[in-house]
Write a protein that binds this DNA or RNA. Structure first.
Lengths: 217, 217
DNA sequence: GAGCCCGTATGACTCAAATCATATGGAAGA
DNA sequence: TCTTCCATATGATTTGAGTCATACGGGCTC
């Protein structure tokens, strides 16, 4: 049993760094840019949501722990991405906790300023909706996988998903999957041994390539 | 194996019938109110999203089928509730299909009118965000359950969730769970036999009450 | 009223992933 | 450099949900 998930590391994904809300607007609406260390907890499951969060630098993981210490990763957020809006706008307690995976900087803005910002900026508001909708898409996808499919299918789906986010030309190029076996396990509801065995089998069957220990697809 | 999920029945949940968008606004923005029969497919997985949908009367189920014919229910929508917005606002194909569970009436509105409506009505726009956020909450909850917990915990969580939606005073009153064993199975990623056995065991352990075959909690 | 479908129920059996134990290698830090 | 921690790896064993077969009762339809 892993006692705690806090010593994990997620490498930075390349890709779009476009911010959900641009810095100038954040500043204009009383957001503070706060420096954070590695493994710093930003909020905890069950607490009330009071602020809007947006990553400026570093990475943030949202996760839940069950009583056995098993973790499930609800999402990973990279620079430019916002997180923790659902409890803020839906008026319910945080369903998961958030922790930094690297030192970095985080924007924080009180709810009232956030709502005013949305009121004044329709395009940003629509952008937020797009973000929420894509997050629902991701959750639907993972839920479908976890509820009905075997380990190989789950891993293939998540690897393809991240490849499509990373690669400029997903159909032509190969990318290195930027996750450890443990991270893949935490995102797919599998155990690390199952991920290791399944990945090995997939390599043997020619469904992906292993370079050293790195997964290429 | 169940060959098809179309002959299922979800009883109407009592509770808030408040519309996400009021009828007057729907009409003002070119929405059409369409009569639908039972078991009518409204859209299918993989198709492009072009319209906003809102239930006026009846019930709608969103579901995915895996190649073995196993179903997973992504959501059930009652009068007043909207559905299918994520692919519309997030610009991706439908991740699931939608089917009516009863004859009824459905509002349909083209995307361009929907976006204009949001632009003109900030309060509705915020209401939509609340709806999307609560849907994310539901999915996070189910995902946490399906990824890490045993059948009893999964069933308890979903029964509690629906009780909190139905009951006026969830802590004081008992409600009858308005789902069949098969429906509970489809929502929790379990098999119907597992649901039956687990529910029986929970009754024996005094965790819920069976009245005839109806589950009371 | 006969037949059919569906929901509930139960026992026997299977099997794949979880669990447990252990080993190796590499990166980071003292 | 030595140590520690983590990631990867692999074999043995367990276990609990899935699968399959079967049964029964109720409601709907022909």
């Amino acid at each position: 049993m892993r006692p705690s998930p806090v010593f994990q590391y997620f490498p930075i994904l390349p890709g779009k760094r476009k911010r959900v809300i641009p810095s100038s607007l954040l500043q204009a609406y009383n957001a503070r840019l706060v420096k954070v260390g590695k493994d710093q907890i930003l909020f905890e499951e069950g607490r009330q949501a009071l602020e809007y969060f947006q990553v400026e630098e570093g990475k943030v993981k949202m996760y839940v722990l069950n009583p056995d210490g098993q973790e499930f990763t609800q999402g990973i957020f990279s620079p430019g991405e916002s997180f923790g809006e659902p409890p803020l706008l839906g008026d319910f307690p945080y369903p998961s906790s958030a922790i930094t995976l690297e030192a970095g900087k985080i924007w924080r803005m009180p709810k009232s300023d956030f709502v005013q910002l949305l009121r004044d900026n329709f395009e940003i508001h629509m952008k937020l909706d797009q973000v929420l909708c894509r997050r629902l898409q991701y959750k639907s996808m993972i839920l479908t996988e976890v509820s009905s499919y075997d380990p190989e299918h789950r891993l293939m789906t998540i690897i393809r998903y991240f490849k499509s986010k990373i690669a400029k030309h997903p159909s032509r190029e190969q990318v290195i999957v930027p996750f450890t076996r443990q991270q893949l396990a935490d995102m797919t509801g599998l155990r690390v041994e199952t991920v290791i065995r399944t990945i090995k089998k997939m390599e043997k069957d020619g469904k992906l390539v292993l370079e050293g220990h790195k997964i290429k697809y």
